[in-house]
């Protein structure tokens, strides 16, 4: 059981970081970013390129992923999403745009990075083994700790910094924030960039553990949406809770339900449907939005 919990915590930490970026963008702009998984993939490929091709340190790779994805996010917000939001009152317009960007990024990724699975050498060798009750490679422990630290840093940033407070105000009430002098356009762009940067950072972190390939984008987006459905869309604490809950459910299911075949996600989806029927706003979301 100890092993199952540790596996769940590792999965949860990385999942939560993915969900944070998605929920941030949703809370600020009411945009369901279907391209979030593709941004994660590009982050992974950038770290791979920096570390495996240019032989630079892992942290440089992470930094490159963060900067590149932040720039991509800012560009997407300023030149794609913002004009569509201005011109169209229909919410599905941004959804279609996001889906289009996802397909576009998939095609670009194939052209630039190729079709192969990519990975980088372990950043730390060795395996922690507590009498075979808990077996955990040190690189997983390190990446898990980094993910938790990044979640903590993000929460601090949102609570303590002027930018974070402005974005929270924007998320709570866009019009009120604007009336109070918050530069809505500027902070929307910063928020989108921050969300995309988080996706890129997780991609960079996990390329050292699970590698990266072209096909990871879609499934990553689906999992991220599940997490924010569990925790509550647009709520930061909800995204964190959703990430850890999904990670734990996956770990428990894969271990305890293995004898019954691959039914873990079947059970998770069924449970999610029942849960949403009773609490459509998720654990921490508000029923009114």
């Amino acid at each position: 059981m100890e092993q199952i919990i540790v596996n769940g915590l590792f999965l949860g930490a990385s999942y939560a970081l993915i969900a944070l970026g998605l929920t941030l963008i949703f809370s600020l702009m009411n945009v369901l970013n279907f391209a979030h998984g593709q941004m994660y993939v590009i982050g992974g490929f950038i770290t791979y390129t920096v570390v495996a091709q240019f032989h630079l340190p892992f942290l440089v790779g992470l930094l490159a992923s963060a900067v590149a994805l932040a720039a991509l996010g800012a560009f997407a917000e300023r030149f794609l999403f913002a004009p569509v939001i201005r011109r169209s009152k229909r919410e599905e317009s941004t959804m279609l745009l996001a889906a289009g960007i996802a397909f576009f990024l998939d095609a670009v990724t194939l052209l630039v990075f190729g079709e192969k699975q990519r990975g980088i050498p372990k950043i730390v060798g060795g395996v922690f083994n507590w009498d075979f009750r808990i077996v955990m490679p040190y690189d997983r422990i390190l990446i898990g700790a980094l993910a938790v630290a990044l979640i903590g840093a993000f929460i601090l940033f949102m609570r303590q910094s002027r930018t974070g407070r402005a974005m929270r105000a924007l998320a709570q009430d866009r019009m009120a924030a604007e009336l109070m002098g918050v530069d809505v356009e500027r902070y929307s762009m910063i928020g989108f960039a921050l969300g995309a940067m988080l996706a890129g950072l997780v991609g960079g972190l996990l390329v050292s553990i699970v590698g990266v390939n072209l096909g990871m984008g879609g499934p990553t987006s689906i999992k991220a949406f599940m997490m924010i459905m569990i925790g509550g869309a647009g709520v930061i604490s909800g995204a964190i809770a959703g990430g850890f809950i999904l990670g734990m459910l996956e770990s428990v299911g894969l271990s305890l339900l293995a004898a019954y075949g691959d039914i873990t996600y079947l059970v998770i989806f069924a449970s999610l449907m029942i849960f949403l029927a009773f609490r459509p706003q998720g654990l921490m979301g508000k029923p009114w939005g």
């Binding site: 194939l110 079709e115 192969k116 390939n213 072209l214 096909g215 879609g218």
Partner: peptide, 8 residues
């Protein structure tokens, strides 16, 4: 298949 996880 030339896209998705089995693209290789």
């Amino acid at each position: 298949v030339t896209s998705g996880p089995a693209a290789a």
